[in-house]
Nucleic acid binder design. Structure first.
Lengths: 384, 384
DNA sequence: AACATCCATGAATACGTATGCGTGTCCCGG
DNA sequence: CCGGGACACGCATACGTATTCATGGATGTT
């Protein structure tokens, strides 16, 4: 026993000086009692030490049952909550995952791409199920996003989400990985991925769309979507498209491909470009549903009937797809499963369990927009 | 001066013992140099004290220009980022807002209500614009949500979002407010609100829908939506509906109101219930677009034509509304503006500026689903 | 030239929690 | 009656930053 030792600090019924051990120097008299309730208060109330409070509250087995109950009761009475900042500072985990969302290059600012909204929903849900919070942050591709989040320690891991080639910022990703930052990304699963990636099988998806259109008897199938390497997902879909064509012995015609990013405006524009070229075509494979919907609008404006004159298929199966007229044939990405996988993978990574990139299967959803041949012209307009 | 004083700590070129002042006892030799880079390291590198680093990095004007530059350079070189946990612990702000999202009572688990998804998007954007991060958390109404977030100090303020009567958990809200928690909510703006609320003018919106239907010549207008006090928004819409009727001297018929929560399933069920009652009706005012869409499905199944036999209007103007067939007449809530206002208000609250509840105007969007009377049966099916 | 002033900086904490280590107590076998 | 566990728990400290107070030097004033 060395003197009066450091008393339990507690600010419940306490006065003036905060910390007796240094009371000699000069304690700020801090009168305004609006202090935060801390574990010391709980400790006092429960008649134990702060350390025991901490242990009790986080379920340390070395605390006896009775003590735990008392502590919990005291905490409940005082409406005490652990300060996550302090907790995170001391421990090293935050119980939070970060979602970095990369904008489409065309931020039309009004609506977020519905597909990502859907992913957002499922990721949020998956996080909730695991007891994690989700920190969301929009990012412009140009910015120094890696710096902001890397070590700011606000999250235990990062999920990268977005269309486009954000994954090609390899140097940044490398830096992150070098520092041990845990991250997984959504996107095209490519051979030389700089980080673990979960994505849908865009290649197979693309192939099955084109196969379906070919089955309908279409022969000149246009592809609307940016096929450059800046949009790996689109590129994969395009590759699938080409392979399906070649399998049938059809030689792809470059004149039937028009670049477009994922929005209705772009889809409309692309379709108009296509029409302006004067190349005959009997089907459109749009790299995303939004493009498809925009394209249908353009065709419709020009009095071209879908699907009777031109069959159309999209990609993503956004909720809208089944409600447009005609209902849109498309490829469904299982966003629910995808979100879960992203979160699961990230959590495993955080716990140092082995994980690897994975490709999810896709499902072709055939609806009226692609039923080109001799199809029932009977039912004029009904929901699917 | 008491002895060698506590040296600048720095772990860059340092060896073994971490903290010289307690070196006497026994310092863990911590060999693995995977230590975090701290402001002390920057301080050493820049030849200043840790305090100066902190000041320089957060733009304290008392730091000279030269010093600041040197510090910034050092920080950049070492890839240093401020540890938000420590920073938040010391300062009292987190630079983060929390969004508590209350599930619809019917969590169909696959898709989030599109209206809220839209709000989510605009809130996220607004936060980003203000340089705040957004922490998202789903909540079940039953749970002790107030405890979890109140003082966990992960966020500077809270936005409450959800349909339903979560705002009536007055005791919880009171507790929060008593503790000085900053919060704003989205919802029906009612007289005795327990906290600042931003909401749309549901009453006027409801009234204008019914006025429009009356203008079309409809006289027996059914209302599909829960009109109980558990859904204040719906209730307000219903009140607006009733007022419009009474203004025209029409006596509301209780048989024309069917409870429904906001989902397609519920809409379908409600419409079936209505039909089963055998009461004649010539229009449906659905309390939300999802309900409306479900109802149209039910009518369509029974071979009842919309809008020729029954006019239908919804509420919310979710993206889908303009794409269903027929395009749905509805009331637009300006989610973009709403999200901005929520964030703005919360930030003001945090900065102790005065704010008050506010109601946003709504806009009636007339589309084909409600054009009941002598309308052009010409155009069979075209996008809006 | 002496003194008040201002500026840039350093020293010393506090923020609230988690945890390694040590200690007192109780129980049991010998 | 004693030694050795096992068990619960308290002590002291570190986590990394922000801020208050003190300080030393440069500048301005009479």
């Amino acid at each position: 026993m060395k003197g009066p030792a450091r008393q339990q600090r507690a600010n419940l019924a306490s006065i003036g000086v905060r910390d007796p051990i240094i009371a000699g120097s000069q304690g700020h008299p801090r009168v305004h009692s609006k202090k935060r309730i801390t574990s010391f208060d709980i400790a006092e109330k429960a008649g134990v030490s702060q350390a025991t409070v901490s242990r009790a509250l986080r379920g340390d087995p070395s605390v006896s049952e009775g003590t735990r109950k008392r502590v919990e009761a005291a905490a409940a009475t005082l409406n005490y909550t652990v300060d996550k900042n302090a907790s995170n500072l001391r421990g090293r985990l935050t119980g939070t995952l970060a979602l970095l969302f990369f904008e489409d290059p065309t931020p039309d600012d009004s609506h977020i791409n519905p597909f990502f909204l859907s992913m957002l929903g499922s990721i949020t849900r998956a996080c909730a199920r695991h007891g994690y919070d989700l920190l969301i942050s929009f990012q412009e591709l140009a910015r120094d996003w890696h710096a902001d989040f890397a070590e700011s320690k606000k999250a235990d891991g990062i999920i990268l989400l977005g269309y486009g080639d954000y994954l090609t910022h390899t140097s940044r990703l490398e830096k992150l990985r070098a520092r041990g930052t845990k991250l997984v990304s959504w996107g095209a699963v490519m051979p030389d991925q700089p980080c673990v990636t979960i994505g849908c099988d865009n290649f197979s998806g693309g192939r099955s769309v084109t196969e379906h259109l070919l089955d309908q008897g279409c022969r000149r199938i246009a592809f609307l979507g940016d096929a450059s390497r800046h949009f790996p997902e689109f590129q994969e879909r395009y590759r699938g498209h080409l392979q399906a064509l070649r399998t049938q012995g059809i030689v792809p015609d470059d004149a039937l491909q028009v670049d477009a990013e994922s929005s209705q405006q772009e889809g409309r524009r692309a379709a108009e470009t296509l029409l302006a070229r004067g190349e005959p075509f009997d089907a459109i494979f749009a790299a995303s549903d939004l493009i498809a919907i925009g394209a249908i609008g353009a065709l419709s404006t020009q009095g071209i009937s879908v699907p009777f004159e031109v069959a159309v298929a999209g990609f993503d199966d956004i909720p809208m797809a089944s409600f447009v007229n005609p209902p849109l044939t498309t490829v469904q990405q299982d966003t629910r499963r995808a979100g879960e996988m992203l979160v699961d993978s990230l959590l495993r990574l955080i716990h140092n369990e082995p994980i690897e990139s994975k490709m999810l299967p896709m499902k072709l959803m055939v609806r009226r927009s692609s039923l080109w041949q001799d199809v029932a012209r009977l039912e004029p307009t009904r929901e699917d």
